[in-house]
Structures are given as structure tokens and as C-alpha cells.
Simulated scan of single mutants.
Amino acid sequence: MQFRTTNKLIIMQTEQLIGLVIGGVAVVGGLAIGGIAIAVSVPWAMKEKLAKLDIRNKERMAMLEKGVDPTIIFKESKGVGQDPMLWGLLLAGMGLGIFLGYMLYLITKWDRIVLTNSLGVLFSGIGLIIFSLYHKASGDQHA
């Protein structure tokens, strides 16, 4: 009888050990795949960026040789996503919506998560609409 109890204990420990080994192999394999992806993609992206920079430089040099001003074509333009006003209005709207959702939760005792998330999204959208109107109005004035 004593032998059977020890045998079950050994089998249970062996199964736990196998489970730990499988989990460890899965974690190490996942990290290895991520590391390989980064090790391959970073140099590839750098090569692509350097090739584009080289082509752009050659185009500018050819334009200068022909007497054309390259600043006419190669204007550095900021994208809309780089405007600090966009991010300010978006985050302020989100914060205001979450705050008002929480205040509404304290008053009405409705579902807190639904209120904070929905009002956060609503006020973020309102912030983006305000930015769109501001961007359109300031673009018309500069033109």
C-alpha cells in the first residue's frame, strides 16, 4: 500500500515537471521568435531608410546641377498627427469625458465602466471635431 502512494506521488511530480518544461519551452520559443524578428527587421529598415536618403540626395544634386531650386519640390511638411494641438484636444477631451463619466456614476450609480469609457470616447471625438474646425480655419488664413 505504501508503494502505491509513493508511485502516485512520483507520477504527479513527473506530470508537473513535464508541464513546467512545456511552458518553459513555449516562453523561450516565443522570446526567440521575437528576438529573431527584431534582429532581422531593424537592419532591413535601416538599409531601406539609407537607400531612400541616398536617392533623395542624388535627386537634389541633379536638380542643383540643372540650376533648379530643390526647396521647391522637397518641402518638409508636418503631418497632422505631429500637431501638438491635436494631441492636446484629444487627451483633454478624453480626460474630461472620463471625469464627467465618473461624476455621473457617483450621482446616478449606473455602470461606472460604461459611463467612463463612453463619455471618454465621446469627448475625445468632440476634441477631434474642434481640432478639425480649428485646423480648417487656420489653414484658410495662412493660404
Results as ranks from 00 to 15, higher is better:
Q2I: 13
F3N: 12
F3R: 12
R4Y: 14
T5N: 10
N7H: 11
L9C: 10
L9H: 09
I10L: 13
I11Y: 05
I11K: 06
M12W: 11
Q13Y: 08
T14Y: 09
T14G: 06
T14R: 08
E15N: 06
E15A: 12
E15H: 02
Q16K: 09
V21D: 04
V25A: 13
V27H: 02
V28D: 03
V28M: 10
L31W: 05
A32W: 06
G35K: 03
I36T: 12
I36D: 04
A37M: 08
I38K: 05
I38H: 03
I38D: 07
I38A: 09
A39E: 05
V40E: 07
V40W: 04
V42D: 02
V42Q: 06
V42C: 02
M46P: 01
K47S: 14
E48C: 03
E48H: 04
K49Y: 07
K49R: 12
L50S: 12
K52S: 11
L53C: 05
R56I: 09
M61N: 10
M61T: 14
M61P: 00
A62T: 11
M63Y: 05
L64G: 01
L64E: 14
E65T: 09
K66S: 14
G67W: 04
T71Q: 05
I72L: 14
I73M: 09
F74S: 06
E76S: 11
S77Q: 13
S77F: 10
G79A: 12
V80W: 06
D83Q: 03
W87V: 05
L89M: 08
L90Q: 02
L91H: 02
A92F: 13
G93A: 04
G95R: 00
L96K: 00
L96N: 00
I98S: 02
L100E: 04
Y102G: 03
M103A: 15
M103Q: 15
M103V: 15
L104D: 06
T108F: 05
T108V: 09
T108H: 00
K109A: 15
W110V: 08
W110T: 10
D111S: 10
R112P: 00
R112I: 13
V114L: 11
V114E: 09
T116K: 01
N117T: 15
N117H: 07
S118V: 14
G120V: 03
G120C: 02
V121S: 05
V121F: 13
L122M: 11
F123C: 10
S124H: 02
G125T: 10
I126N: 00
I126H: 02
L128E: 04
F131S: 02
S132C: 09
K136D: 10
A137I: 12
D140M: 11
